[in-house]
Design a protein around this nucleic acid. Structure first.
Length: 289
DNA sequence: TGATATGTTATCTT
DNA sequence: CAAGATAACATATC
């Protein structure tokens, strides 16, 4: 699934294409992916205009003209594909795409929007973990406040803030802490591993035992890597495609993720892969202490 | 062929 | 409360 940089990329590309478009129709083939009964959901969305699209953590937020907010989470395998009336794909983003995108909708197109200019937005999701939720402003604000920590690229995420966050979970393993959306928003498995490699910290280290100088390094690394990845239009280890059908170019920049048994880029030792907090975890046992 | 892993996260069980 | 397992579901890979 896309992490922060991928979702940010999709957001930017969708905004260019969808701003001020009116939703003429919506088809929902998997009712559990939306938060109202299908007919109700459709009636709430139909006729609304997309005023803006923003991102928070790994969530996309479509701000509608009728005071509803459409919250989209792609989870592991969601994709958003925007196609013009003439069939040209203008925005493709999310999970690795192996399907033939010239044939849409396909069997994974569970939610499909049609706009008044007869363009379409396909929400595909192989595993059906993703969702589209309609919320009122107050509900949205509450949900975001309750479930998500600071944006790692915001001013709010200062070095001091990061230190405070580490102190909240002194006994947690450092990687586990980076992955917790309530503590820091938007970091997923790939960027957690890459940030820790960048900072030369073993992912198994206990938060309270990480030295001040290392915390400073890690803080800088998180920002650096997320920024780099956004500039590269995201990663996705397999065949992630961005909003214009181009592959995210972060892949060659990854130093440990997906490099199991390959030589470390820095010291040539073999990259290890272990399970930590239930997630595949890649690191260099020689570089990361 | 069967077991295992997959970029997420909410909800259980221990 | 915390850590770990499981579940939601489908596919790819070993």
């Amino acid at each position: 699934m896309p992490e922060l940089p991928e979702v940010e990329t999709i957001k930017r590309d969708l905004l260019k294409n969808l701003k001020n478009k009116t939703i003429k129709d919506i088809k929902i083939k998997v009712p559990k992916m939306v938060n109202f009964r299908v007919k109700k959901f459709q009636s709430l969305v139909k006729g609304a205009k997309i005023k803006n699209i923003t991102r928070r953590a790994k969530l996309l937020i479509f701000e509608l003209s009728n005071d509803w907010y459409l919250l989209v989470h792609l989870k592991l395998t969601g994709q958003l594909i925007y196609r013009e009336k003439n069939g040209i794909l203008k925005a493709v983003g999310g999970h690795p795409i192996k399907q033939d995108l010239t044939k849409l909708p396909n069997k994974f197109s569970h939610v499909v929007f049609t706009f008044s200019d007869n363009s379409h937005l396909f929400f595909n999701d192989v595993r059906k973990f993703g969702y589209a939720k309609l919320l009122k402003k107050e509900e949205l604000d509450e949900l975001l406040k309750k479930n998500y920590g600071p944006e790692p690229l915001s001013q709010e995420f200062s070095l001091n803030k990061f230190k405070e966050i580490l102190k909240k979970r002194p006994n947690w393993k450092i990687k586990q802490l980076l992955l917790d959306q309530k503590l820091i928003a938007g970091i997923g498995n790939i960027y957690a591993d890459e940030s820790l490699f960048c900072a030369r910290i073993d992912p198994r280290r206990i938060a309270s035992k990480v030295k001040e100088s290392e915390i400073k390094k890690l803080h800088a690394c998180i920002k650096k890597i997320l920024k780099l990845s956004i500039a590269k239009r995201g990663t996705s280890a397999n065949n992630y495609v961005d909003a214009y059908g181009r592959q995210g170019s972060m892949v060659p920049c990854l130093k440990v993720y997906g490099s199991h048994k390959k030589p470390c880029r820095k010291c040539k030792a073999e990259i290890s892969k272990i399970k930590l907090a239930g997630r595949g975890t890649h690191f260099c046992g020689r570089c990361q202490k």
